[in-house]
Design a binder for these strands. Structure first.
Length: 255
DNA sequence: ATTCTTGTTGAATG
DNA sequence: GCATTCAACAAGAA
């Protein structure tokens, strides 16, 4: 999401909006009228991100994007067709446009008045990139269930998805089903450092999996892959209804 | 052809 | 209140 935010920031902030087009309503959480009224003739003055949510500031409020599982922003010249699966397109006065692309339409588009209120109303946790060590330990120590659930739950910490959670647990050598309650304070501190490292490393590599330095699990999420550390076959299980990959040798249940 | 899986979330359920 | 399950959605793979 941080990469998306930077992508949008470079192309949309400072530009005046001259047209708004809707190709599909499924992702809209408010009326087209409300969105158009807020955006038309406005200029994006700033951009913010909290977890997987991006907010474009425009005077009267914020345009909120959530890209869901298969969503991404797309910027193009208006002489060309919008990218495939564009659901929502904002045209700027410089003859370029920003599309919200979403194959599965699992994303969301909304207008919000205030980011802080939005985060509070949706009970979204602190952002994974900005939470401090103490708060991390504090919020994690309150959770029950598996460590993977706790890390992925946006109400605990905002921003971690399925594959990066697996990567963090792989780097930290923790079995994804380990109960959070069984992790000592020290382990949580170490997990915190690993979480930050994985996020920073991913961003440095433009969130492209092929840019992740070895050893990594991110590029081995398919049957038959082997652990880059110990060469054991990578295992796939289900945790929280999500396909979960881990190395059964490196990530033993007990630390 | 049907079922499963997927870089997600939130409403329903236990 | 908290943890777990499932629908919404679309398309490619098994």
């Amino acid at each position: 999401m941080e990469i998306f935010k930077r992508y949008i920031s470079r192309r949309a902030v400072g530009k005046r909006i001259v047209k708004v087009d809707y190709y599909d309503d499924a992702m809209l959480l408010t009326s087209k009228k409300h969105i158009s009224q807020t955006l038309l003739d406005a200029t994006f003055s700033n951009i913010h991100r909290h977890g997987k949510y991006v907010f474009l500031e425009c005077g009267k409020g914020y345009l909120m994007f959530h890209f869901g599982m298969t969503g991404e922003p797309g910027y193009f010249h208006i002489e060309k067709d919008p990218p495939d699966y564009s659901r929502f397109v904002i045209t700027f006065e410089d003859n370029h446009a920003l599309a919200c692309i979403s194959r599965r339409k699992l994303g969301k588009i909304d207008i919000v008045k205030d980011i802080t209120t939005f985060i509070k109303d949706h009970e979204i946790g602190e952002d994974a990139m900005s939470i401090d060590r103490e708060s991390f330990r504090d919020v994690m120590s309150r959770k029950r269930g598996s460590i993977k659930n706790a890390l992925m739950n946006q109400k605990t910490i905002a921003g971690l998805g399925n594959i990066y959670t697996d990567e963090i647990l792989f780097q930290e050598k923790i079995h994804p089903k380990t109960p959070v309650s069984s992790l000592q304070d020290k382990s949580l501190g170490s997990l915190y450092t690993t979480m930050k490292n994985v996020c920073h490393t991913a961003i440095r590599g433009q969130a492209k999996l092929e840019n992740m330095p070895e050893p990594t699990l991110l590029t081995r999420r398919s049957p038959g892959e082997r652990c880059p550390v110990c060469d054991s076959p990578i295992q796939k299980i289900t945790v929280n209804n999500r396909g979960t990959y881990f190395c059964p040798e490196c990530q033993k249940n007990d630390e």
